[in-house]
Design a protein around this nucleic acid. Structure first.
Lengths: 140, 140
DNA sequence: CCATAAAAAATAATCTTTCTCTCTTAATAT
DNA sequence: ATATTAAGAGAGAAAGATTATTTTTTATGG
């Protein structure tokens, strides 16, 4: 928890149990949870915490660059403590979201800049498919 | 409107004025509108139409492959009658969404397949930046 | 034309996210 | 340690987007 405290302080944010818990959870999971999921995981340890607090905390963390927001095309956002821009792959069977190696698109931004007059500053790449487990299920 | 009628009939859909209007609008715009935008454009010509009808029609059109749904990371979905998978670029200044040439990523799917056990079936690529007009605004 | 199955309209409901207001607490300097 | 104060948490309402439900209307094939 020490590093997490330091991360918050560096950005001039108050260190509160809720923030520590949310950021800690995001940094130690790779499941790209929604606000709802985070809330459900933490509410047993922090019974007074409300969903609104989760949302507000996520917004603060996002604005200071500690987390990033994903939108894979569901109704809701997902959150990721790995803030380097990297592609994601979404399982259409079970809804799981996983990271892909970012080397896949290393010169993609350059390509885009060549084809457009926009000043390009970021990208989001999502791939869709079926994970090994779901492929197996479909064959049975 | 003849081709549009044919498109609907091919898919066994009833041809109604609302469907024709919505699909026609999507096929002749490149602005990637939201359901709300579509509704506002059409409600003057179809005063009895409700937003719910727009949503239901969009769902039908999406399910039959006549349109695709985009999610560039706002609160709401956008719709596009160009159904081939192609990348989009979003202006962070004015919110405009434009198409990019799909040749940019022609071998990207192959790359992804090499790096994952997933059975990959689709992708969504979004780039973010500032359009020429917004760049100019920022320099003033 | 008519029957009927599908679609539209109207409205309510739901789900996600944001806002507002009040109370509490962390951080800092005494 | 304690007081100060400004930021954050909590609660609940509200807003915004989407979906569901029920009734009415309409398109289409016979």
């Amino acid at each position: 928890m020490e590093e997490i405290t330091a991360l918050l302080k560096q950005r001039g944010l108050k260190v509160t149990p809720q923030r520590l818990a949310i950021l800690n959870f995001l940094m130690h999971t790779n499941e790209h949870p929604t606000a709802e999921t985070i809330y459900k995981k933490l509410v047993s340890d922090f019974p007074t915490m409300s969903l609104a607090t989760v949302y507000k905390t996520l917004e603060v963390l996002k604005n200071t660059g500690l987390i990033q927001e994903l939108n894979v095309g569901e109704g809701s956002f997902r959150y990721d403590a790995k803030t380097t821009p990297h592609p994601h792959i979404v399982c259409l069977g079970c809804g799981k979201v996983e990271d892909l190696d970012e080397s896949i698109f290393k010169d993609l931004l350059e390509e885009v800049k060549k084809h457009t007059d926009y000043k390009v500053v970021g990208q989001k790449l999502y791939f869709y498919g079926y994970c090994p487990a779901c492929q197996k299920k479909m064959n049975n």
